[in-house]
Nucleic acid binder design. Structure first.
Lengths: 154, 154
DNA sequence: GTACATGCAAAGTCTTTGCCGCCGG
DNA sequence: CCGGCGGCAAAGACTTTGCATGTAC
């Protein structure tokens, strides 16, 4: 069961900005995409070849708990990370899993629609669009024109 | 990478409704919640003690590919399943992970807001509300009144 | 020194898969 | 027979964690 983990209530707000953490943060901003831990690991390894994947996971967790980055729990199985901590929505390619920001303003009022209609205390919401990215769309068209119609796009 | 899996384009639309599949379907409807595979497994085991978890996973996959049930990819790590195949939204308790339907009609038009603003071909969207279920809310209040303020609600 | 970080490997969680025997048409 | 199906265990993908060592104040 994955609960919002706030295990360490006394976590130091001024945690040490170690070299590893700084590089992770830099790479995340540089990538300007929505990478998963593995991708960040690969990027960081170029400047810190001896960093471990465990450290990357640990620090992504720390950084997101302190609000320096945002952890995205998308529909898929992997968590992704976003340097942009503002609330916003995403689009995910159902074929290649690429994630972009959705060009749609954050809907501040949707949650109000549930007031009185549910006994949950709503605190947040998450909206994710699904579709095909331009590249996969193109491949899908090519493929369809060849008469093949099902399964993952090549 | 989890892509919408449609691996078997020739899957028989009239798959055999075996005893295992029937019981899985029945239990899912009976539960009327949004159980994960493990919970379904436990429920099904009462009538079919020798069923395996692998079979449950396989059949949930088959049933959802044939549109008999809906596979939910919520924010968390586990997939959940819903007997109601109509498009609708959910609320998830951030403390105990309970999932309810959200009392909000499906927004047929949100996707249109992206037309022209993205080069993705949007095909779907998913909206999930987060909050505390009544039980966890109550516990949180009790706990807060004792002066403890952080971490997972007991 | 002390407290927190890191590297490494092991373990954990959830899900998928290979194999083989079984069952129904 | 044949093809799909189920049980079982092993493997896979992703993430967390225990432990000894390092490092910064």
């Amino acid at each position: 069961m994955q609960v919002t983990k706030n295990r360490n209530p006394n976590m130091n707000q001024n945690m040490r900005m170690t070299r590893q953490r700084r590089v992770i943060l830099e790479e995340l901003k540089k990538l300007d995409s929505h990478p998963n831990a593995e991708e960040i690991y690969e990027a960081v390894r170029e400047s810190l070849p001896r960093i471990s994947l465990g450290t990357v996971y640990r620090n992504l967790e720390v950084l997101s708990e302190l609000g320096k980055i945002q952890k995205l729990e998308m529909g898929g199985t992997q968590k992704r990370f976003d340097w942009d901590t503002r609330k916003h929505y995403h689009i995910r390619c159902i074929n290649c899993d690429r994630v972009d920001n959705a060009p749609l303003g954050f809907m501040k009022n949707v949650e109000q629609a549930l007031y009185g209609a549910t006994d949950f205390t709503i605190t947040d919401h998450r909206l994710e669009f699904l579709g095909l990215c331009p590249l996969c769309m193109e491949k899908a068209i090519e493929r369809d024109s060849l008469g093949k119609t099902a399964g993952k796009v090549a």
